[in-house]
Design a protein around this nucleic acid. Structure first.
Lengths: 102, 102
DNA sequence: TATATATATGATCGATTACTCATATATGGA
DNA sequence: TCCATATATGAGTAATCGATCATATATATA
């Protein structure tokens, strides 16, 4: 049986990778085609494709075909709230660590 | 070089495990000793110990010794905001999936 | 139809993760 | 001191993950 924690973990682990976070940031600022993301992030094409697939499968992204291209958009904008909080937590953590040397 | 995405991913992957989410929920509701968490979650002792260590190392939990016991508390409460958003996203996703059968 | 372009996927490989068992360490009490 | 209790950790293992290369598929265009 799956409990709430399992579903939460599914969402969180879909986002818990540096490249996937970078992908989501690109999409956040208007880039929504696979082909534009790849060169910007300097990622191997098949690797990017797989990361995008993970994000779609987890329900974070939605994708549609447009000729040769595959476009992506956010399916649930709250994921950005989640990323922002993670950034805040990480920032505080770093500040506390460097405090020692101040 | 580490970028923001790396630090965010560190936080997120520390939380992205069902048992660690369950641990955080126990602590949220006042249980803060290792020895009380283990039986409640039906986890093997060494396994729990390692999960707690991951949470401490990532800066999400803080721990202190009290005789034989090791107690834990949240170091950054915003982690609960993060968990709540993950739960909301997961809930919406499930609703959309079951919509098909309605 | 032949070719170029964009994306997806099979196969493989090394690294990491989660778990368990056994054991070590550290503390408190009889 | 001896023993019980709570926690931590080394070693081993199976499973999963991330990356890459080669190749397949699908579509647009000459």
């Amino acid at each position: 049986m799956n409990t709430a924690a399992d579903f939460q973990a599914d969402i969180l682990s879909a986002v818990a990778h540096p490249n996937r976070i970078r992908i989501l940031e690109k999409i956040r600022y208007g880039i929504n085609c696979n082909c534009e993301i790849a060169p910007e992030l300097n990622m191997e094409q098949s690797n990017l494709s797989r990361h995008l697939k993970i994000l779609v499968k987890s329900g974070i992204l939605r994708s549609w075909k447009e000729g040769l291209r595959t476009n992506y958009e956010i399916a649930d904008k709250r994921i950005y709230k989640l990323l922002d909080i993670a950034a805040d937590i990480a920032k505080t953590k770093l500040e506390k660590q460097t405090e020692v040397f101040a």
